[in-house]
Write a protein that binds this DNA or RNA. Structure first.
Lengths: 238, 238
DNA sequence: CGCTGAGTTGAAAAGATTCAAATTCAGTGG
DNA sequence: CCACTGAATTTGAATCTTTTCAACTCAGCG
């Protein structure tokens, strides 16, 4: 793929690995279990863009936005870190994304040298990291085409669907979504303005697909319709 | 990052690694040098979406489009494979992207079992693959925000800039770009329609930034202006 | 009880898509 | 070698979507 080898000022990845599943990442879990805890308040950063990568983190509780700043004050949110997620991984020496807490957040911090040691001691861990990061790439691609070629309503539906599936995977209610992030964060994630996000949520409510009691609590009332918005690439669902 | 752990039908990554640089991937090069050659014609596939991952490929000459199909016949082009690029890598058993030749293309084919053997014999190789894929992820993120929050003219400038840098990195003329792909391919890559791509190229020509003698040959006449279009919103942290 | 920041909503403007037509280009067969 | 055919490209005009700018509501908090 040409893009990476061209990118001269390519942005630094922090590489976000998912939380190890049941049969993966035992070593990581083991190391992390003994790692130190750190608490950060809303608005504080786990790490800043450009900061040296000293630790990798596992989110114990709370939520973070992973973003890159643009020159003109705008920013691109690349993802969110929720409890169970690993953040801050990557091959480079510095983070090129920042991780800012959206609510009070607790992190486990594993020093990078220790991670490297673990990898050296256990080559299988490298393969796991590789798998995890290739998942991450797959996800980035998934998000890419769900954003680049779709309308606002489809993007928002995609976003809600992902959160719903995440709940499901964790045994939480897939029909009730708690949003720790603002409309602006969602917009920066989906490539929309905050007004469009708000309007689109209102539109989904008008269609009866969702229910918005509080602005940060979304009830999904018609999961099928949402899924169709995401899956059907161009059949309008009115 | 939540997205990956949610994605239920997450798309399969083929993981696209870049061509090994001067000091990287010697083992890969070594193995590939003895790998078998395969030629494919325009429109043929190196591998189809969903096909089992039997080989990884190095593009010797030619060009391919790496894409995923959408339900309704549209597709998302995730990248292009040019000579020197490695394609088809990834942790999963099947490709979830297809790789279709844009012009007559020659590939080196390295069987996956052999790659695994090489990794086992040389743990350092795994680290290199990890680095390479984290670069790939960084690139995907780069592309992501260059597409999701920008106008057509900025997207096209970004595209041309990348190709220009690629030429530069390879000792080719950074001011002359040969496009092996159609306007539709570019559009599918940038999240635009082919008409918009065409119009935007015409606009860049009208501004005097580029020169289009033939539709597949672009001369960059004002590299600074193009760079400003790209950088206007994204200020790199380095 | 007024502030402040987040969210919602409206209206005008900008930008991209869609549909349609014209033009260029490449490859084929005469 | 040239005309023909189909594909790729360009361009135009109408339409649709999203953004922008602005006003307004609401909840939390000093």
């Amino acid at each position: 793929m040409f893009s990476q080898s061209l990118a001269p000022n390519t942005t630094q990845p922090a590489v976000y690995l998912r939380a190890p599943g049941a049969d993966r990442g035992e070593e990581l879990d083991h190391g992390l279990a003994r790692a130190s805890l750190r608490k950060i308040a809303v608005g504080e950063h786990a790490f800043l863009e450009g900061a040296p990568r000293s630790y990798i983190f596992k989110v114990e509780s709370g939520a973070l936005a992973l973003y890159r700043s643009l020159g003109d004050g705008r920013r691109q949110v690349l993802g969110f870190g929720f409890d169970g997620d690993l953040i801050g991984l990557g091959a480079r020496k510095c983070h090129l994304v920042g991780a800012q807490a959206l609510k009070p957040t607790t992190l486990r911090c594993l020093p990078v040298p220790q991670l490297k040691q673990m990898i050296n001691a256990n080559p299988g861990l490298a393969a796991r990291l590789y798998e995890a990061i290739s998942e991450e790439l797959a996800d980035a691609q998934d998000r890419f085409f769900n954003v680049s070629q779709r309308r606002a309503i489809e993007r928002v539906a995609f976003f809600l669907q992902k959160l719903s599936h995440r709940n499901e995977a964790r045994g939480a209610d897939p029909r009730v979504i708690l949003l720790p992030m603002s409309r602006a964060d969602i917009g920066d994630y989906l490539g929309l303005t905050l007004e469009t996000v708000s309007r689109t949520l209102s539109e989904l409510r008008a269609k009866g697909y969702i229910c918005l009691k509080e602005s940060r609590v979304v009830q999904l009332r018609n999961l099928n319709a949402l899924n169709e918005l995401v899956d059907s690439a161009s059949d309008d669902v009115e």
